[in-house]
Design a protein around this nucleic acid. Structure first.
Lengths: 395, 395
DNA sequence: GCCATTATTTTCCGCTGTCAATAAAAGAAA
DNA sequence: TTTCTTTTATTGACAGCGGAAAATAATGGC
């Protein structure tokens, strides 16, 4: 039954050990005292938690040369040994696969992309296996073991079960992807929704580190949103959450594929912008790159389309802020390439529509290189590896 | 410094004991086995947790006469002894105080309301003290001790600190209400936002019992929303959360006191409906009761105003469902008196605007008697009492 | 009366994290 | 150089929580 080899498991048996490790992972090198303070543990507990992790090579010690206070015993810093383990993350889009090899600190070692002519589960799995193999070969040279594979798919994904319930882009329904991929690749597999995976990456390795309530908004072909509330990623009781793209901004707006009018996505999604610019300028516009170019050239009407998109996004973010009161909102996504075209409107619309002190929410932007989605998948795999119970876990 | 007497504390030292008690509180009489199953504990742990609570009188045993399976040792049911302790909840509105005396199961024993001619902190405290005294006298007859006072106020309230940061209705800013009321009344005081308090009541004693993700939407003078995500009430990083009333539904809609146009509250709030019906029908309409009457009589235009309000509420709820994917939404509030006038539209708009399986969310309505807000305050007090750490807690 | 069956309690037992005391690693003072 | 002071890390004893398994309890059926 189990074709996957008994993979290495993470030597953090106790809650405290997990706690300490993730704290060090997210907050860089820390003294044992600081780690304890952050994790709410006594120094003694940190010492005990750290030892097996040092022995297993997941943590390393290194003293901080500069910035040492003149008095007292110098602090010994503890940090995660990124070299200790590698992970692979794969993002499956409608027409291509993006894969990255990362270390334990989720730093990208290598990225690959390959077109995906066929969306059948079989073919996708074969392509994934091919990419994974390629990355494994590279990883073998570095000597570090690859300990997990994360796969990110848009749509309704049940991470705990490893099942893709429904992915409209891929036209998949109830595919036990984790199991299938584990059989093909021999690695423990984590499957998650793409936006949630990206949110995990921000939560552990990005601008969300240490925050208990924040949101990630992705702007691109679709408009998505990952939410962290009470320190946990929101998954939704029925698999749907963070659908900011289908929040209705203007009931008189353009119609959306979801059946409504004036969704954020129907105004600010890539396709919507391209279509609208085509209509407004009368020119032929092939893709968003051209749309951006037209707007930057100052072609009449094109700028306004972006302005309107920015307004829609800003309103959507304000809605999230009004409902959840996050500490921070991180805007990211491929669409950020056009950020200069709508940044002002996003901020303006957000400030106008945020209620009371919800406006205090810190709205940031982060560039999103194309491998970022795949990195999110790797982050999910890292998370699974670290939090996996050391019992006989199945792929 | 401490003018409050050393009040009785809840004898649940261990997490397991708290867990078991709240489980029994929310899910009625349970066998020890069932309680353990629900709380994720072994039967042995339940026995140990239950004993001190029985001894202290917070729990009582009672066998279930009917519905006993023919075989095996009959189960001994454990339930909360409501008589063991009483709590007082007070809701402060702009023009009146509502107070209730409840038992430990949050069942209302007595309700009182009194007009509030003056909103100064001094006067409000005096009125609260008067009402509390009156209820205390009644409570004394029953012999059960009153162990906590909850105060619910609309606006930005920091429950942990017991401070009202800003309440627009009362025009209060940074009032350490818990401390002030504790000095006046001699009871441990919990101060919370009114909608959050109501949400706590639903979470522990109502339709949210046992759910880890749900929302409470209140319809009335304002449109509010309390959220429970991952089993905890959402408070917002900056004190604002659940502001569904100021989610913009229609940028071309009527202007709202918050400065925007087309907020849910600007369409479906009591004042908005009355104003609009006045405009549409040309008649004099004094308050919502008259507005409802006109709509029920079939006066042309009045019904449509309610229909539009229902649509706005339904859209707002759909927005919550799209973003958070709650298991259930509980609609409540004074405005529910007009439920027959907009129920259809709420449901319709919700179904239309909910994305994908977010539409599976169970939308319920619950009548909201006038004392319900005060009961929410009592629920908050009960929660504080039960979860209070048995260290030297301050009032 | 004995047995099967289910509920509850008891009796250990492992394990976790805290506490308080101790060691370690400096620079400062003598 | 020695000794102090200061801050960090470690150690070992310890309390207590919750689990596993075995014992006990309460029934109805045979």
């Amino acid at each position: 039954m189990r074709s996957t080899p008994a993979a290495e498991t993470f030597p953090a048996q106790t809650p405290a050990a997990s706690q300490v490790f993730t704290t060090v992972l997210s907050h860089g090198p820390l003294t044992r005292l600081d780690a304890g303070r952050r994790a709410g543990l006594s120094p003694a507990a940190v010492t005990k938690a750290v030892r097996p992790l040092l022995e297993a090579g997941y943590l390393v010690e290194g003293a901080d040369e500069e910035a040492r206070p003149a008095l007292g015993r110098p602090a010994g810093l503890v940090r995660v040994n990124g070299e200790r383990a590698l992970f692979i993350g794969v993002k499956v889009t409608g027409d291509e696969l993006i894969a990255v090899l990362t270390d334990l600190c989720c730093r990208i070692r290598l990225a690959r992309r390959t077109p995906l002519p066929d969306r059948s589960v079989r073919k996708v799995l074969a392509s994934v296996a091919g990419l994974v193999h390629e990355l494994l070969v590279h990883a073998a040279e570095s000597g570090a073991p690859v300990l997990g594979l994360g796969i990110a798919v848009s749509g309704d994904v049940d991470r705990a079960e490893g099942v893709v319930r429904y992915s409209p882009f891929l036209e998949w329904r109830d595919i036990p992807l984790a199991e299938l991929a584990a059989m093909a690749g021999g690695l423990p597999v984590t499957v998650d929704n793409d936006v949630r995976a990206l949110t995990v990456a921000e939560q552990w390795f990005g601008a969300g580190a240490g925050l208990s309530d924040f949101a990630v908004v992705t702007v691109g072909a679709g408009i998505g949103c990952g939410l962290v509330v009470h320190g946990q990623v929101v998954a939704g009781a029925h698999g749907v959450a963070g659908e900011i793209g289908h929040v209705v901004i203007d009931p008189a707006g353009p119609s959306c594929h979801c059946g409504n009018r004036g969704c954020v996505e129907a105004i600010a999604g890539d396709a919507a912008i391209v279509t609208r610019i085509r209509e407004v300028t009368g020119r032929h516009v092939a893709d968003s790159a051209e749309a951006v170019a037209l707007a930057r050239q100052g072609v009449p009407g094109a700028r306004e389309v972006y302005a309107r998109a920015g307004e829609a996004i800003g309103r959507g973010i304000a809605t999230v802020a009004n409902l959840l009161g996050p500490e921070r909102v991180i805007i990211s996504g491929e669409g950020l390439a056009a950020y200069d075209l709508f940044a002002g409107q996003i901020r303006e619309a957000f400030t106008a529509a945020a209620f009371g002190s919800a406006a205090q929410c810190d709205v940031q932007t982060r560039p999103l290189p194309f491998e970022e989605w795949a990195r999110g998948a790797a982050a999910a795999a890292i998370q699974s590896f670290i939090t996996s119970t050391p019992r006989s876990g199945q792929g």
